[in-house]
Amino acid sequence: MSDLFTIIGGGVCGLAMAAELSSRGAHVMVIDPKGAPGDHACSWWAGGMLAPDCEGVSAEPEIVRQGGKAASWWESHGGIVHHAGTIVVALNRDQSDLATFARRAPTATSLSKTQIAEHEPHLAERFSKALFLADEGHLDPRATLTALHARLDQKGVRFGGDIKGQVIDCRGLAARDTLTDLRGVKGEMLVVRCPDVTLSRPVRLLHPRFPLYIVPRGDDVFMLGATQIETSERGRATLRSVMELMNAAYALHPAFGEAELLEIGVDARPAFPDNQPRIRRIGDVIYANGLFRHGFLLAPALAQMTADLLLKGKIPEVWYEDHRER
């Protein structure tokens, strides 16, 4: 096995891959069309929630397990993870959704109005029941990617150049030219400034059609996300989607009605049919892809598994062989 790697794609998948391989002593080069992290990567638009237990309500158990390692991985690679947990609420008429969520998220504990007030005073103005997932965390995706890029640069990872050694394709949805079963799942998000609301942790508002999460970014800035639409379209946020997100935020706390709209973001998440990531080889190239809505949660595990494969010959759990090609 070569210890010289060229990673194609500098989003969360590619940078995590570069960090993992270089921390194990490999020589790594990253090729990305724009060089530095930016809005051309779908992880730029991510929520940055490290919330395996919440995700486990609708995702496979493997995702919960592999995502459990994410927070410590990011911290050991210079990331700043806020360990404040997640709060989950539902409007009065959607309380049955809260009951279902509680049943399917075994680590969730119930909060009374007084307990909500201790965690999030502004939320207690609106909700008398909530769920708390204490072990979850969150990070700021853009700050994290930018810092990781700088850190890798300092450590001698090269950005740009001629392809050498083993190629690892981490291009996300762009790899659809080769990975024919990769599809896009469109997500729209908003960034707002709202000095009237203070939140210290991600809050999820359950709703049968318009679920919302709000992640505090500090300085009165919040990220509101995200729609999930079965289309590979990477642009064109629609008025309906934006309105639904705003409406949900307004329902969470009417003070969001006075928020300043800073940004409307849209991109498509790369996903395989089972919505789980895969590592596979086609020809001489290794492909690591399909992080779906779990970029920051699963990129560390995907990078570790890929490094184990390339440096130790260990077949990854998410190794994929296309049986149709045999």
Partner: peptide, 16 residues
């Protein structure tokens, strides 16, 4: 309706 996108970009899902 929503999946159509600007240029019938929902076709991956429709193929499934």
């Amino acid at each position: 309706r929503r999946e159509a996108g600007g240029d019938q970009t929902g076709q991956d899902f429709w193929a499934l």
